[in-house]
Write a protein that binds this DNA or RNA. Structure first.
Lengths: 132, 132
DNA sequence: TTCATTGTACGAGAATCATCGTAGTTTGAC
DNA sequence: GTCAAACTACGATGATTCTCGTACAATGAA
C-alpha cells in the first residue's frame, strides 16, 4: 500500500513497459469448476457471458449496457477473468473481453455450451410464461 | 467427529405412508439456473451432489461424512433443496436426499450430466497432478 | 500541451454466506 | 413412560460479495 500508487507517464521504471498493461489470468490448470460456477451464478455476469457468446468475438467493457455503475461493471469483469471464464486485454483505452472457449472446452468438455443453452432456455421460459 | 454411517439405500418400503413433516420444494418452473449454479459452486455441496449421483438413489444426511458440523450440513442440504437440485423427504428419523434428475433434465437438458462430468474431471486432475 | 474516453483503485455500506455451538424436536425402539 | 439417533432452529461471528461514489490513471486525438 505504500508503493506509489501511480507512475507518471515518463517515469517508467525498469520494466518491459510494453504499451499494454498486463492483466493476471489463471492458467488452465488453475481454473476451478467451483469458481466458474460461482462466476456464472450472478445474473449480471451470466448476462455478460451470454452476450460474449452471442457475439463470438471480443467486446469492450463499454459495449455492455448494464444497469450498474462502471465500478461494479469492472468488478464483474474481474471476477469473470479471475475465475478463468474470460480473457481480457487492453487495446488503446478500451479493454477487450473474450470467452476462454478453448481452455474451458479442454478442461470441461461441453460445459460452456450446455450452460449457455440452459441460460437461453431459462431466458425464453421467463420471457414467455405460459402461452403468450 | 465420527458420524455413524447409517445404511445407505434403505430397503425399499412398500408402504410409503408419508411422514407428517413436509419440506418446501420449488416447482420446476421456479427453479433458477443462477440458484443451481450458486448451489453447486460450494465445494461441500458439489461433493454431496457427486455422491448422490454416484449412488443413484436416495441417501440420508447422516450417510455423508463431511468435515463440517451437523448444523452446517443441514444448511448445505437446505440450499440444495431450495435451489431445486435435490428433493428431501423424511423417513423415520432420517431425511432422505435424492437428485431431481428428471426436473433438472427437463429444464436444462444435459446440464447435470455435464456438470458431474466436469466435477469428475477436475477431481481426477487435482488428484493426479500430471502436467499443466 | 490539453482534452475526452475508457476503465481502475480505493473506501465504504449493506447484504449474503459458511460456519459454529447450544438447545430443542421428532421419530422409533426399549 | 424413557432413551438415543437424526435432524433443526436459533443466534452469533467472521468472511465474502455486490454495490456505490469519488478520485485517478492510461490512451489517443486535437
Amino acid at each position: 500500500m505504500n508503493v506509489p500508487k501511480t507512475r507518471r507517464k515518463g517515469a517508467a521504471v525498469t520494466s518491459p513497459a510494453v504499451s499494454s498493461r498486463d492483466l493476471p489470468h489463471p492458467e488452465p490448470a488453475e481454473i476451478r469448476l467451483e469458481a466458474v460456477l460461482h462466476a456464472l451464478s450472478d445474473p449480471m455476469r451470466l448476462r455478460i457471458v451470454r452476450e460474449l457468446a452471442a457475439d463470438g468475438d471480443e467486446l469492450s467493457c463499454s459495449y455492455f449496457d448494464l444497469p450498474v455503475t462502471k465500478s461494479t461493471t469492472t468488478h464483474h469483469f474481474r471476477v469473470l477473468r479471475e475465475s478463468g471464464v474470460i480473457r481480457q486485454v487492453y487495446r488503446g483505452t478500451a479493454k477487450m473481453n473474450g470467452l476462454r472457449r478453448d481452455d474451458l472446452d479442454g478442461l470441461f468438455p461441453g460445459l460452456l455450451d450446455t450452460l449457455l443453452d440452459a441460460a437461453g432456455r431459462q431466458a425464453a421460459r421467463v420471457r414467455d410464461p405460459g402461452d403468450g
